[in-house]
Amino acid sequence: MSSTRPLAVLVGPPGAGKSTVGALLADHWHADFRDTDRLIEQSQGRSISDIFVDDGEAFFRALERETVVSSLTTSAGVLALGGGAVLDPDVQEALVGHRVVFLDVGIADASSRVGFDGSRPLLAVNPRASWNRLMKVRRPTYESVSTVRVDTAGRTPAEVVAAVVAELGEP
């Protein structure tokens, strides 16, 4: 296994813009972009929602942990983690020493970005209340694993990228 490390790791809740900002940030740095949710979907040949329905959250979280921990040592560009990945203690430990960016977002921006549709299994029932509960539980972990926090409220993806670069500097 190589000892390659990501230039930045993006964490945050659904709707924070991890995939969009991650791709733009990777372009800015002329680097690769990887999204652990997409890596899981590719390896399984099905959507995250289907994995949740067919095999359950515990199975998905095990896949997620393996994918994230592996990607932290084999990805050279920008890496976006699924919203719940940081809740796993092994993932938290693996993030130590990485440049982790918490993309913070409020419910108004998140809902307009993701629409709280059925593709987000943990937000399928009463999406707004579920998102608020999710953030109450996850916020302390997002804050504790991150080296910088960037507020995405009211910002375009390009403005968020500029804020991330301002915080991290160039690689």
Rank of each mutant, 00 (worst) to 15 (best):
V125G: 06
N126S: 15
S130W: 04
R120H: 00
A166V: 05
S112P: 04
R155G: 07
Y142N: 03
Y142Q: 01
A166L: 09
L95Q: 07
V96R: 15
V137H: 13
I107D: 11
V165K: 09
E159S: 08
V164G: 10
E159R: 02
S146P: 00
A124W: 03
V164F: 08
V148M: 06
G97K: 09
S112E: 14
F102N: 04
V145K: 09
R149T: 10
R113Q: 04
S146I: 02
A129R: 14
R133N: 02
A129P: 07
G154M: 12
R113P: 00
F116R: 03
S119I: 08
V101G: 09
L134H: 01
N126M: 13
R99N: 08
G106T: 09
V105F: 05
R138H: 03
R120D: 05
R113C: 07
A108V: 14
T152N: 10
A162G: 15
G115H: 04
R138C: 04
A108E: 15
P127M: 02
Y142V: 02
K136I: 09
N132P: 02
V148N: 02
T141P: 13
E143T: 06
R139L: 11
G106F: 06
R155Y: 00
N126E: 14
R133G: 07
V96P: 13
T147D: 05
S146E: 02
V150R: 04
V96S: 14
R133W: 06
R133P: 00
V150N: 04
V145M: 10
A110C: 01
V105A: 12
A124N: 06
V160G: 07
K136A: 15
R138K: 03
V161D: 12
K136T: 10
G118V: 13
G154K: 04
P121H: 06
F116V: 07
V114G: 13
S146G: 02
V105C: 14
S112Y: 11
V137I: 14
G154R: 03
R138Q: 03
K136R: 10
D151H: 03
V105Y: 08
D117T: 05
D104Y: 02
S146W: 00
R139V: 04
N126K: 13
L103Q: 03
A166H: 04
N132Y: 01
N126H: 12
D151C: 08
S146A: 15
A129T: 08
T141Q: 12
V165T: 07
T156M: 11
R155E: 09
A108F: 09
G97S: 10
A163F: 00
P121T: 06
E167Q: 15
E159P: 06
L103A: 07
S112H: 14
V96T: 13
L95V: 04
V164N: 07
P157I: 09
R99M: 10
T156D: 13
E159D: 10
S119K: 10
